[in-house]
């Protein structure tokens, strides 16, 4: 299984979890995060998203982020899926899964990957709202989260 996937189609969390732990009895801990399209953002009613990316660089940057996580923590397996294109309300956007012998490394690695992804991987969200379309502004809190590591 590839560690990284950038795709338009949805993913199945159960299948991803099964693949992450399949045949690996050393990983006593499995952590995953799923990001979804939510209804409200900065007070706006969101009806959907369009996710743009920079093909080629996106995969490269995710691979680099995963590599950095592996250098910092004793990770057994990692899986990162990020969707692009049109997404409706409530749909899954991103999956990050990590396994390790103990939970601390898996929690930290998953959070690190999300924090770095949100500040370094070339994805951009355009929101559809009741009053039209609008590019989402980057948040300072995401920068601060990434700077913790």
């Amino acid at each position: 299984m590839n560690e990284i996937a950038v795709q338009t189609q949805d993913f199945d969390v159960g299948a991803e979890y099964a693949a992450l732990i399949s045949g690996d009895t050393d990983a006593g801990a499995a952590v995953f995060f799923v990001g979804r399209v939510r209804a409200r953002n900065d007070g706006r009613e969101v009806t959907g998203l369009h996710l743009e990316h920079y093909p080629g660089m996106t995969e490269k940057s995710l691979q680099d982020i995963v590599q950095q996580a592996k250098e910092r923590w004793p990770i057994e397996r990692v899986r990162v899926i990020h969707r692009v294109g049109a997404l409706r309300l409530g749909e899954q956007i991103v999956f990050v899964g990590a396994t390790s012998p103990h939970r601390a490394a898996a929690f930290s690695a998953a959070e690190f990957i999300m924090d770095y992804l949100k500040t370094r991987a070339p994805f951009w969200k355009k929101e559809q709202t009741s009053s039209g379309e609008l590019w989402v502004e980057a948040r300072d809190t995401d920068q601060q989260s990434a700077q913790r590591w």
Binding site: H53, I93, M114, K118, T119, A121, F123, W124, V136, A138
Partner: peptide, 10 residues
């Protein structure tokens, strides 16, 4: 070369 706005994925 790419010039890009701050990213907003995830």
């Amino acid at each position: 070369v790419a010039f890009m706005p701050p990213v907003t994925g995830g």
